[in-house]
Design a protein around this nucleic acid. Structure first.
Lengths: 354, 354
DNA sequence: TTGAAAGCGCTACCAC
DNA sequence: GTGGTAGCGCTTTCAA
C-alpha cells in the first residue's frame, strides 16, 4: 500500500520576485536614477533636501537595500575583508577572528572567512578564490610552514593582489614579506623557560607540533634557548612531536609518560595541547602540578579553569586581530611594526620546586 | 636636534594597476569576450577544444581571477552564504561556524560572517547589510530573545530576503517561522534533570542567563519539568540570573554560595557558565563534584578537561552547522525537520549521591 | 561554434 | 542641483 510519494519538500516561495533596485526607488520617488543614487549612497551631499527626503522615504517604503555587488562593480572597490584561519573552532583563531570582526565592524567592512585546515594547497586555492572577491584587505592567520613548497606560489598570488590595490596582512611570522602582526613566539617561549628554570625545573620535555610548523618551531627554539641560558640542556629525545590540537597533546603526553624518563616539567607549544596533556597526566593517575608541572602558550580562557590553572605565555589575541586590520587600513593606531607584547603568566601548574 | 620626521610608512605599491579582466584574457587569447567567458566560467561546454585551451593558457599566464561581484551582477546570483552568530569567540558558535564553513566549502560557497553580540538592533542592522550582498543563504545562529520588540522587523527583513529567492535558516528556535535546525533544549534539559534526580540530587539551584534569552529559558523550563517529574520542586529563589558567559557563571555561583542555601547540585544553562561556576566553587574552598555537583549544557571540548569533568547535554554543534546549510540548499541529506538529537552525558562532576 | 551586443544594478562624469 | 548616459566586468541572448 505504498501511496504515491509526496514531493520531498514543497518548493517554497511560489513567486520569487526580483529584489528592489535603485531604479524602482527612483521611479517611486519621481526622481532620476542619479539623484536617487546621490541621496542614498552618495558621499558629498548635493541633493536638495526635499528630493533627498522623497528618495529616503521611497527607499524605506520599498525596503530597498543597495546591491553591494553592483556597487562594487561600479565603484571598482568593495568593503570586504577576507580572513583566512587554520581552524575556526580553535580558540586561538576564533579569538583573533573576533578581533578582526570587531575592527571590521567599526570600519564598516564585511568579513569573509575561510579555514585552510593547515593545508597549503587549500590555502593557495582559497586565496585565489577570495581574490575574486576583490576584498580591500586579506588577512592570513593560517599557520605557516617552514618548508612549504607552495610558498612562492602563495606569495605570487598575494603580490598580484597587492599590485591591484589590495592589502595583505600576515599574522605571526613574516616569512612571506608582507605587513605583519609579528608575534615573537621565540622570545615569549624563552622568557617562559627562564621563569620556569628559576622555579627550579631541570628535567624538561616538550610537546611540539609535527616539524615544519613555523609557530611551533619558533616556540620550541625559544624555549630551548631559554633553558640553555640557565645551563639546562633539552634532550632532543624529550621533544615529542604530535598533533597541534587538544587530542594531539593528550596522545603526545601518553607517549612521553610511556618513555619512562625522569621529567619534572612539560612545555606544550600551545595551550590546547597543554590542556590535553594535563588530562593525560591525570588519566595516568598522576597529579598535574605536583608529579609533573605543565606549561602552555597563548593563554586561552580555558587554562584558568582547568586544575591546576596552567602557566602560559599570554598573547592579546583579539587585539592582534584588531591590529591586523588597522595595519591594513594604514591606521596610525596600528602602532609600530614591533612584535606584539607577550607576557609570561605563571600559575599553579608550575609551582616552585622545593 | 629633532631630525625631520620620516614619513611613518612608505606608501607601498607605487603603481596600482587594475586587475586583469576577462577582456584582457580574451585579447591575449585572440578570441571574443563571449568565448573567453564560456571557456572559463561557462557551464555547458560548447567551445572548440583548441580555443578553450588558448583561453585557459592566457588566463593562467595573466593570473586571471574572475571578478565575483561582476559575475554576481551579470548572473543575478552569488555564491555566498551569510552567517550571523552572537559571538564568534564562544566555542558554541565557533563550532557551529566551523560546520557551516565545511559545508559551504563543499558546496563551493563563500561564507560572510558577523557577530550580533546578542544585540537585537545590531542583528537587524546586520541582516540588512548582509542582504545587500544578495547571499544565497542566510543562517542565523544569533541567540533569540523571547521579548524582542524588533522581532517583527527582523522577520519582515528576512521575509523580504526570501521573497527575492534567498533562503533563511534559523538555528535553535523557530520563533521566526523559517526553516529551522531545531535544538530541543527543553527536552535535553529535562532528560538531564531526570538523570540527575536518579543519581540522588534533591537540593538544586540553577544558573541562568538574564530573562528573555530563549535558549536559556527553554533549558530552565525543561530542567524544572524534569525535576518536577521526580517530585522535586525548584525554588524560584534558587535560580540565579547572570551573564551567559564564563565570567557570568563564575559570578553567579559566587552569589549562589553567598546565599547560604543548602545545595547539592547546580545546573548552569550552558557549559561556559558551568566552567566558570566550577572555578568559583573551587575558589570558594569547596570541591566541585564532592561538596557541590555541577552540570552544564552543550558539551564543549573544555568540559572534558576540567576537574572533575562536567556532566552535560551533548549537541553535535558542527553537525548542526552543516545541517543548517544543507537545509538551506534543499539537500535531502538535510534530513528531517525533527530536532537534532541531544544526549545526556554524565561525568564525574555529578557522582551518585550516597 | 563563434562573436556582437544587450543587459545586470549601480556610480560618476558631463552637460544643462 | 539635476538628469542623461557612459561605463564597471561579466553573462547570455541572438544572429551569423
Amino acid at each position: 500500500m505504498t501511496a504515491p510519494e509526496n514531493p520531498p519538500q514543497a518548493p517554497l516561495p511560489a513567486e520569487s520576485r526580483a529584489a528592489v533596485t535603485l531604479h524602482d526607488v527612483a521611479r517611486e520617488a519621481g526622481v532620476s536614477l542619479a539623484t536617487a543614487s546621490r541621496s542614498l549612497n552618495g558621499s558629498t551631499r548635493k541633493v536638495a533636501e526635499e528630493y533627498r527626503q522623497r528618495v529616503l522615504a521611497a527607499a524605506e517604503r520599498l525596503n530597498y537595500t543597495p546591491n553591494l555587488s553592483a556597487q562594487a562593480v561600479a565603484r571598482g572597490s568593495t568593503r570586504t575583508v577576507a580572513l583566512l584561519v587554520a581552524d575556526i573552532a580553535d580558540p586561538y583563531f576564533s579569538t583573533i577572528a573576533s578581533g578582526v570582526g570587531a575592527a571590521a565592524d567599526e570600519a564598516q567592512l564585511l568579513v569573509t572567512m575561510a579555514a585552510t585546515e593547515r593545508d597549503p594547497e587549500r590555502e593557495l586555492e582559497l586565496v585565489r578564490t577570495m581574490r575574486g572577491q576583490r576584498p580591500r584587505v586579506m588577512i592570513l592567520a593560517s599557520s605557516r610552514r617552514t618548508d612549504d613548497p607552495l610558498a612562492p606560489a602563495l606569495r605570487a598570488e598575494l603580490e598580484a593582489f597587492e599590485q591591484t590595490g589590495g592589502r595583505v596582512v600576515v599574522i605571526s611570522t613574516n616569512d612571506l614579506n608582507f605587513r605583519t602582526v609579528l608575534l615573537d613566539n621565540a622570545a615569549g617561549a624563552r622568557d617562559l623557560a627562564l621563569a620556569l628554570a628559576d622555579r627550579g625545573y631541570r628535567h624538561v620535555a616538550v610537546l611540539a607540533a609535527p616539524e615544519g610548523l613555523v609557530t611551533s618551531e619558533d616556540r620550541l627554539r625559544g624555549f630551548t634557548e631559554g633553558l640553555a641560558a640557565r645551563g639546562i640542556e633539552l634532550d632532543p629525545a624529550a621533544v615529542v612531536r604530535t598533533g597541534f590540537t587538544r587530542d594531539g597533546g593528550y596522545e603526545g603526553m601518553q607517549r612521553l609518560l610511556a618513555m619512562g624518563r625522569e621529567i619534572d616539567l612539560v612545555f606544550a607549544v600551545n595551550d590546547v595541547m597543554a590542556v590535553g596533556a594535563l588530562s593525560a597526566v591525570r588519566d595516568a593517575g598522576l597529579t598535574p602540578g605536583v608529579d609533573i608541572a605543565l606549561a602552555g602558550f597563548d593563554d586561552i580562557p580555558t587554562v584558568r579553569d582547568v586544575t591546576p590553572p596552567l602557566s602560559t605565555v599570554a598573547i592579546p589575541l583579539a587585539e592582534v586581530g584588531r591590529r591586523a586590520l588597522a595595519m591594513a587600513l594604514d591606521e596610525p593606531a596600528a602602532g609600530s611594526h614591533e612584535p606584539v607584547a607577550t607576557t609570561v603568566v605563571l600559575r599553579a601548574s608550575t609551582p616552585h620546586r622545593h
